[in-house]
């Protein structure tokens, strides 16, 4: 019996570490992109490897959690939900890493008059993820509180959509950007940054259902 409690503590610790990794990764994502928008390319590139390390560490944690839940037959009733949650949550960090890498490879030109908008979009996208993490913790500890917290995720995802739309309108209305391909490029990157918030919302939607199932 003692070993079950010991294993439970181990998985709890891994889940918490996994959540902290995501928080740290999106914080680095925000800081790095802001540095990119300010033209501090060295600092931007330095953060790239840190995000990749976190992503790789999260993959290992995800595997450990999955393996222990299955091999020790833990939480038979909610195992599928928890694993589904961890898998989709891992997509958030994957997307953040990919978007970051695309900035590093494609290096889109962010015009000065667009920097504030891109900064705002990055902030609200990351804020959506920051709202998601307490919802996940609530799912594990206090399922009744999930609905309220998930409301915040929806709110910030909507803000991210608005910020993305503002950038797109500005870009396509601009006469300064002559090449259509460049406009498409900026639209693409606005959508990519916003996709981090979209993924967070997708996790939140799953979470709402899982939380209802968890209530006695």
């Amino acid at each position: 019996m003692y070993s079950i409690f010991r294993k439970a503590r181990g998985i709890e610790a891994n889940i918490e570490k996994f959540l902290k990794n995501i928080e740290t990764a999106v914080d680095l994502f925000e800081l790095g992109l802001k540095e990119y928008f300010s033209g501090k390319m060295d600092r931007f590139e330095e953060r790239c490897s840190a995000i990749r390390e976190l992503e790789s560490d999260s993959d290992s944690l995800r595997f450990d959690i999955k393996f222990t839940l299955y091999s020790d037959l833990l939480i038979p009733d909610s195992r599928g939900d928890v694993l589904g949650l961890i898998e989709t949550l891992d997509n958030v960090i994957d997307i953040a890493e990919k978007v970051y890498l695309q900035f590093s490879i494609e290096q889109p030109i962010i015009y000065d008059w667009l920097v504030e908008d891109f900064r705002a979009l990055t902030e609200v996208s990351v804020k959506t993820v920051h709202m998601l993490i307490p919802s996940i913790r609530a799912f594990f500890n206090e399922p009744r509180a999930v609905a309220d917290r998930v409301g915040q995720v929806h709110f910030w995802e909507h803000e991210a959509d608005d910020a993305e739309l503002r950038i797109k309108r500005k870009v396509f209305a601009s006469e300064e950007i002559e090449q259509f391909s460049r406009k498409m490029h900026l639209r693409y990157f606005a959508e990519k940054i916003s996709s981090v918030a979209d993924m967070a919302e997708a996790v939140a939607e799953r979470l709402e259902v899982y939380a209802i199932k968890r209530e006695l």
Partner: peptide
């Protein structure tokens, strides 16, 4: 339900407790 709403027990620990 009354107790669980007031005592915050982690899902995984709750699983161990439920086995007990």
């Amino acid at each position: 339900r009354f107790v669980l709403a007031r005592v915050r027990v982690h899902l995984i620990r709750m699983d161990a407790l439920t086995r007990f």
